[in-house]
Amino acid sequence: MSAIVDLVERGQLTEKPDMKSGDTVRVHVKIREGDKERVQIFEGIVIGMHRGGARASFTVRKVSFGQGVERIFPLHSPTIAKVDVVRSSRVRRAKLYFLRGLKGKAARMKETKRA
């Protein structure tokens, strides 16, 4: 992208932990209800990072009551209070879309030690 677009986007970038596909993360999402604000946690596996300056996003997948749920978060959205990386695992590709077809034991992944 051009240097000028970078300049515009720079002010919007937020500090986020270094995460990658295969990481299990806890995303703290701010939710507004009327004039009250609370934080909801969405915990799941990152199945894809989508790069691109302030437009970057990431997809988190979890299995909730037997039902697969995926949520795409804008990486630098002000509604994301924080992201915790709970666990990292060894994966061999950047986008883990194959997890959608797997369930139970088959969808497990080997943990790696974080540096």
């Binding site: 677009v5 515009v8 302030a54 437009r55 804008p74 630098h76 959205s77 002000p78």
Partner: peptide, 19 residues
Amino acid sequence: KVGMTQLFTADGTVFPATV
């Protein structure tokens, strides 16, 4: 025209923006 990006507001609304 420089290009396009997006802008966030404080409540997380995203606006498509042309620079």
